[in-house]
Design a protein around this nucleic acid. Structure first.
Lengths: 148, 148
DNA sequence: GAAACCGGTTTTATATTGCAACTACATAAT
DNA sequence: ATTATGTAGTTGCAATATAAAACCGGTTTC
């Protein structure tokens, strides 16, 4: 997307999020991070992406406070990319991507990787937007109001 | 991201989703659609993006079954882009982007647009991944298992 | 009937991507 | 100790995508 100057400092939270991770590779990198990937080479092999791009993406993710660069946990002289609290905050988003993909891009019975609750081994509940009082909300039940 | 050949037909639902909407503009277009935007010119003015890019994005979103192109509802000879059921399925994802943005990109008290429940006028509950039995799940409580 | 509007496409310049080669340092093998 | 291999990048270059502006044919408004 390159410049997208119209979005800098936007008053819409969606726009700011998109500014930080609204790019396919970044989302996949974060997905992998949730699966325990931490090292540059692991990301690179796993995603099959060019190293220079991975390099710039990771730099940007670190700059955006989504990853921290810390000394490797295996005692080697290398470093690891670990999710910050902000990065972990993307968990529902990645779940959302996964559930939407499962619902609309796979045939019945078509094999795909699954994300399961470690304790029960069963899939998660579908994410559902709800009102404060618990009512289930669809797109038509919501209104966006501009910044005051 | 251009080619990303490594992702075509991926067995990971996240990857397929990213293939379809993992691009900043597409996400913002969908966000606007949830706010009731339907016409080419509305999207263009609203997002401040180049018309040629909007054109290719909308074409791709239609090709991916996220929007339908239908005759304009005002009786004019023009057409409108309306979300399909699949497109509406992105609602939780957009909420996820919004809530993450609100949580991590705004200072306390900093003004931003809000999405509220139409009935109560109050903000939504935070999206929370849960196990089937209702337990709240964090990233550490989940495991990804490969396609069988 | 003229002027403005709508929904694009075309053109052109610039920025980003992706690949392959290269580098510097760390670790492992002989 | 020397050599090989692995890690984590960077650099150069060609291909591709993006952005801005001009253009264009039908539509609606005046």
């Amino acid at each position: 997307m390159a410049k997208r100057t119209s979005l800098e400092g936007a008053e819409c939270p969606v726009a700011r999020s998109v500014e930080a991770i609204g790019d396919g590779w970044s989302l996949l990198i974060v997905r992998d991070a949730f699966d325990g990937i931490r090292r540059f080479g692991e990301f690179q092999r796993n995603l099959g992406m060019a190293k220079n791009i991975l390099s710039t993406r990771l730099r940007s993710l670190v700059a955006n406070g989504i990853f921290d660069l810390v000394p490797a946990s295996d005692g080697s002289a290398y470093q690891e990319y670990v999710l910050t609290e902000k990065g972990k905050g993307l968990f529902p988003l990645i779940i959302g991507l996964r559930q939407w993909g499962e619902a609309f891009f796979f045939e019945e019975g078509e094999a795909h990787s699954r994300l399961v609750d470690r304790e029960s081994g069963r899939p998660l509940q579908a994410l559902e937007p709800r009102a404060e009082d618990g009512r289930l909300l669809g797109p038509e039940d919501c209104v966006r109001i501009a910044a005051e």
